[in-house]
């Protein structure tokens, strides 16, 4: 079974072709012009998707040497994401599905991030516990089966990825913040400064990261930007460690409490090297198996959309041509 996947939810245009469980091609075109604005400008993102999507689909079919007529289904992200950006991919996919008389498979991007793990780990099976960490999400999810999710904990304010971006902005490091902070933190000292670790009383599996960003902001204001520049590596390491402590502790505690022997990381922040090493280390102590996607499949990509589309296809969960793009789609309001 061959699935063509299209992803245009934010600032990456991506097209993939999946043959059963094998990725034949996964093309990702990142929009670099947002960097000068310190974040994604929605209108610019929509325009860029509009320009390159057609050519990217052509290139994906060429490179995978798959004819459009051999494609079984067309998978496309329908949310969450930026409305205008989502609509470009979704409208294209609808037109393509209609003209080729192939099933349309509307995919939840968040579910796609979880499914990315099956691309690298075909042996993975349900159930498992998932830590979903990205620019928009920080959630601990019990995954009983495909399409069967229970959210056990979540961030009550900023997402972990958002906390990284905000730190990078405060420290004038550029955008996107996650990879930059990760890189600088590797040569910094995590014990340089102790940032607050928020514990949420009513639900210990919940997270809060907004206080952390405020603490960094006040510290930089108090000490001055020259000082911050001089100690940026140590500040990044200390800040990152505060995020990691909370992510790792909450996740492992939940896994132990729920007696989950399998732990899966998903989302853009799953690419963070410190998170990968710390969660692997502690999981080993408790005899928990850890899975995370390769770096290529942590960030937004169409391979994970195709992989999710495959599961939808198998279950005959086809989408109607009237489905909407849903900017605030979640795992809970989807089904």
């Amino acid at each position: 079974m061959k699935i063509l996947g299209i992803e245009t939810s934010c600032d990456e245009t991506s097209v993939a072709v999946l043959d059963d469980k094998t990725v034949l091609v996964n093309l990702v075109s990142s929009q670099l012009m947002h960097q000068q604005y310190g974040g994604v400008v929605p209108e610019l993102a929509s325009r860029e998707h509009m320009r390159i999507l057609d050519s990217l689909v052509t290139e994906a079919l060429d490179k995978s040497q798959v004819e459009l007529t051999d494609i079984d289904g067309i998978a496309v992200t329908r949310g969450p994401g930026l409305m205008g950006a989502l609509l470009v991919g979704l409208s294209f996919a609808k037109g393509l599905a209609f003209a080729t008389e192939k099933p349309l498979l509307g995919v939840n991007h968040v579910e796609g991030h979880i499914m990315a793990n099956f691309l690298d780990h075909p042996e993975l099976d349900y159930p498992f516990l998932c830590l979903l960490v990205s620019g928009g999400h920080t959630q601990i999810i019990f995954v009983k089966d495909f399409h069967d999710y229970t959210i056990l904990g979540r961030s009550i304010d900023d997402a972990a990825g958002e906390a990284f971006d905000k730190a990078a902005r405060i420290l004038n490091l550029g955008y996107p913040g996650g990879p930059i902070v990760d890189r600088l933190a590797r040569i910094g000292k995590p014990e340089f400064y102790h940032f607050p670790r928020a514990n949420i009383k009513d639900n210990p599996t919940n997270f809060s990261f907004s206080g952390l960003k405020t603490a960094l902001l006040y510290l930089v204001r108090q000490k001055g930007s020259e000082w911050a520049e001089k100690h940026k590596n140590d500040l990044c390491a200390s800040y990152q460690e505060a995020i990691m402590d909370v992510l790792v502790t909450n996740t492992i505690e939940t896994a132990i409490q729920r007696e989950c022997r399998k732990l899966v990381l998903a989302g853009g922040v799953a690419a963070n090297s410190r998170l990968r090493s710390r969660i692997s280390e502690i999981s080993m102590q408790y005899g928990i198996s850890v899975y995370f996607p390769s770096l290529e499949y942590c960030t937004d990509n169409a391979a994970m959309i195709s992989r999710t589309g495959r599961e939808l296809y198998i279950r005959q969960l086809f989408s109607s041509s009237s489905i909407s793009a849903v900017p605030n789609l979640t795992l809970e309001n989807d089904f």
Binding site: S46, M50, D54, G84, F92, G95
Partner: peptide, 15 residues
């Protein structure tokens, strides 16, 4: 405009 043009491109792409 983007919905119209994206849909048109998708329709046209097939053939």
């Amino acid at each position: 405009l983007r919905i119209g043009l994206s849909t048109a491109k998708g329709l046209a792409f097939a053939r």
